[in-house]
Write a protein that binds this DNA or RNA. Structure first.
Length: 301
DNA sequence: TAACCGTGGGG
DNA sequence: TCCCCAAGGTT
């Protein structure tokens, strides 16, 4: 290291103002952001938004909250009803976990979504991101909320690379904490604002720097937007995998009102070994309940 | 840690 | 068409 050049690199404080002001003007009016959403609404939205786009979540979210306005309402249902109501959002284990979280909230927390980060983290289906998101968005707490959007915004604007690492690193957590505004309400708005910037402007592909409030200080843009060099980000295969078979099997069970015969499930996939493996996996995951005589249904207990 | 877990839309 | 990506979590 020779003489440290003074870089145009933004300090935390220089990012907060522009991003918060931008959010003020550009935040989407999403139902889980309305005051009446409550912590349960925020939590439901976070489960649904794990790996699923907002546009597809919206209608299911509305139906879900209308049917189960409180955790205890969902907890009183069979888990299979949650799986059915989940529809085609994908990753149906999330529905099961959301149901399990509702049961735990009803049993352990008097029916109220806990505000404590550690207690949130202890619920099924809630990991590092979701715990921070619920604590921040629902309860206004100060947490580093590191989702794929925020990680990309930080990777570009601060670190100067196109994409963040494949898995969240300690360096990213440290950076996120360093960038967090000191006071609680501002930190909570910052979390939502930086996430929204990544979702609307600093997108994975076709980012629109002309609309970015921190473009002038963005390390990646100032460096000429160098292309991602690291290892190729693993693509997810789907066609021909167990996941596809599981999806087909579950779709049949979701749409059925009565237990389904083995033959109806056999019809969804030609290859018997893979088909059986997929069905066994669904049963092992608790997404499917086997009955006597080779019949199956969504779980009732 | 890396693989697994669905589904659909946009470029 | 095909590929990439989408507010992750769990094992």
């Amino acid at each position: 290291m020779t003489a440290t050049p003074s870089t145009p690199e933004a300090g935390p404080a220089e990012l907060h103002g522009p991003v918060l002001a931008w959010f003020e003007q550009n935040a989407r009016d999403l139902p889980w952001r309305r005051p009446d959403a409550g912590a349960w609404g925020v939590m439901v939205s976070e489960f649904m938004l794990q790996q699923t786009p907002v546009s597809r979540v919206l209608p299911v979210y509305e139906q879900w909250l209308a049917r189960w306005p409180r955790p205890a309402d969902l907890a009183a249902e069979a888990p299979g009803e949650a799986v059915r109501a989940w529809g085609r959002l994908g990753y149906p284990r999330r529905a099961l976990r959301l149901h399990g979280a509702a049961v735990a909230i009803t049993e352990r927390h008097g029916g109220d979504v806990p505000s404590d980060h550690a207690q949130l983290l202890a619920l099924p289906g809630i990991g590092e991101y979701t715990a921070a998101a619920v604590a921040s968005f629902a309860y206004g707490q100060r947490h580093a909320v590191l989702d794929t959007n925020v990680r990309r915004v930080f990777a570009r604007s601060v670190t100067g690379v196109q994409y963040p690492p494949n898995a969240t690193t300690a360096a990213e957590r440290k950076l996120a904490r360093a960038l967090l505004p000191d006071d609680e309400p501002t930190a909570a708005r910052w979390a939502a604002a930086s996430m929204e910037l990544g979702a609307l402007v600093c997108t994975a592909r076709n980012e629109d720097c002309s609309r970015c409030p921190i473009a002038r200080r963005c390390a990646w843009r100032l460096a000429g937007k160098p292309a991602h060099d690291g290892p190729a980000r693993r693509g997810q295969t789907y066609a021909g995998t167990d996941r596809q078979v599981r999806g087909r099997l579950l779709a049949v069970l979701r749409e059925a009102t009565a237990p389904v015969e083995q033959a109806a499930l056999d019809a969804v996939w030609h290859e018997p070994v893979q088909r059986a493996r997929a069905l066994d996996g669904l049963v092992a995951d608790g997404l499917v309940e086997p009955l006597e005589g080779g019949r199956y249904r969504l779980p009732e207990g």
